[in-house]
Amino acid sequence: MSPLAAGDDGEPLIRWEWISNNLTDDIAEALREHLILSFTPVLLGFLVSLPLGLACARWKRLYQPTLAITSILYALPAIALFVILIAFTGLTYTTVVVPLTLYTLSVLVPGVVDGLAAVPDHVRQAATAMGFGPLRRLLQVELPIALPVVMAGLRVATVSNISLVSVGAIMGLGGLGQLFTTGLQRDFPTPIVVGVVLVILLALLSDLILLGIQRAFTPWERAGGTRRRKTADQAALPGGGAA
């Protein structure tokens, strides 16, 4: 009944009945797990990256070693980490959350450090000269200016986690990837298609939401642009203002 291409054995790519039959339990459950497994590491990674990044920005000599460690961790294949961890933590969420948190760190720590490095020195100096103490300067000046770079890192980490969680399913660790294994085991393409589509949608939607948050919190990023110097220079000339 499906208009989509059929397999060799006449099995259609999508069986809509399967979707409607499994929507509320298997599919919804896989989606819920996938969300938890992708976002928990982002949240944990963020909570660790912020102080770590601040420390690296403050004590520059910490940065290189920290970067080296997180890069090495990043280079380890997710599947290898899953296998190693299963030995200790078994088939639990922890087995997925720990490696993905480490991956998140490797993206977010540089994000925080680069974001803070992007604060122009004259802005920092002006803040100090106006009487901002170190903490107030950090919270009210440096972090807000660093936000776009940090958010960019957060978006990369989120999308990459959403895709990596699928890998965990091969080891039976839950998430939408389970639909792939179900499909492969039963030689039945519908769950695979559903899984792929949902992973892609989830990644797109998460990225869009994060982008929306970023834009809402950084209105100055969109200011300027093409109209930047339109009337500006004339008005600055003597006679343009109150002169």
């Binding site: 002006a126 106006m130 807000p144 950084t218």
Partner: peptide, 17 residues
């Protein structure tokens, strides 16, 4: 001390945000 002394620099040092 600094809150009682105005300070102006070459690049203006305005807060971009």
């Amino acid at each position: 001390l600094r809150r009682g002394i105005g300070y102006v620099i070459q690049q203006a040092g305005l807060f971009p945000h």
